[in-house]
Amino acid sequence: MAEANGGDLPHLDALAQYVKDLSFENPNAPRSLGPQETAPNIAIQVNVNAKPLQDGNFEVELMFEGTAGEGENILFRFDLNYAGVFHLSNIPQQHVHQVLMIECPRMMFPFARAVLANAVRDGGFPPFLLQPIDFAALYQARVNELAQQGAPANS
């Protein structure tokens, strides 16, 4: 009966999602909270890591590091490591890495985005809403980069 209901179909379950580490700095407060003459330069770096746990479970980390402003005019800085535990079943081995690096972060992104928006708002600024991220494009860019370096794609 399980096979008739798709028991052998590939399946991805999110078992847990959580903030693993969060840092927000407002180094120039209260001066930084006043009106600004120009919009701040915002720089963001995004990374994804995955590691196996046990019994088909994996921990996936979605990491954001960013700043608003430059030099002595930094408005705020943040670091967020948002993680999840996922269970993969019936996924062909050659696709596991793609699922972990594309689908899992895609599922986690809205929640991590909300954590960042709230942290920035709680720091005294308007909520900071990250634009959606194309994790498939990031993955493909990384695969291409590794191919040019002669490294395997699942590094």
Rank of each mutant, 00 (worst) to 15 (best):
N49A: 07
N49T: 08
N49M: 03
N49F: 06
N49P: 00
A50T: 03
A50I: 03
K51S: 11
K51E: 11
K51M: 05
P52S: 15
P52W: 05
L53C: 08
L53P: 07
Q54W: 00
D55A: 14
D55V: 07
D55C: 10
D55Y: 08
D55I: 10
G56Q: 12
N57M: 14
N57G: 09
N57E: 15
N57A: 09
N57R: 15
N57S: 12
N57H: 14
N57D: 13
E59A: 04
E59H: 02
E59I: 03
E59P: 04
E59Y: 02
V60D: 02
V60T: 08
V60A: 01
V60I: 05
E61D: 11
L62F: 08
M63L: 11
M63F: 11
G66K: 03
T67H: 01
T67C: 00
T67W: 00
T67V: 02
A68T: 00
A68C: 00
G69A: 02
G71P: 04
E72I: 05
N73L: 13
N73H: 14
N73G: 13
I74W: 07
I74S: 11
L75F: 01
L75N: 11
L75Y: 03
L75T: 07
F76H: 10
F76R: 04
R77A: 09
R77K: 15
R77M: 13
F78V: 02
D79W: 09
L80N: 09
L80V: 10
N81P: 06
N81I: 15
N81H: 10
N81A: 15
N81M: 13
N81Q: 14
Y82E: 09
A83M: 11
G84K: 05
G84R: 09
G84V: 11
G84D: 10
V85L: 06
V85Q: 05
V85P: 06
H87A: 13
H87E: 12
H87T: 14
S89W: 04
S89F: 07
S89A: 13
N90P: 07
N90G: 09
I91A: 04
P92C: 08
P92Y: 05
P92E: 14
Q93H: 04
Q93A: 11
Q94I: 13
Q94D: 15
Q94V: 12
Q94N: 15
V96E: 09
V96Q: 12
V96T: 12
V96P: 04
H97I: 08
H97E: 11
H97W: 09
Q98W: 08
Q98M: 12
V99H: 03
V99G: 10
L100I: 04
L100H: 02
L100W: 02
M101K: 01
M101Y: 01
M101V: 02
M101T: 06
I102R: 05
E103W: 03
C104I: 04
C104L: 08
P105L: 08
P105A: 07
R106H: 07
M107L: 13
M107W: 06
M108R: 07
F109Q: 12
F109C: 13
P110W: 05
P110A: 06
F111G: 15
F111V: 13
F111D: 14
A112S: 08
R113Y: 07
A114M: 14
A114S: 15
V115W: 03
V115L: 03
V115F: 00
L116I: 10
A117E: 00
A117R: 01
N118E: 15
N118R: 12
A119F: 10
A119P: 13
A119G: 15
A119C: 14
A119D: 14
R121W: 03
R121Q: 14
R121I: 02
R121C: 05
R121N: 11
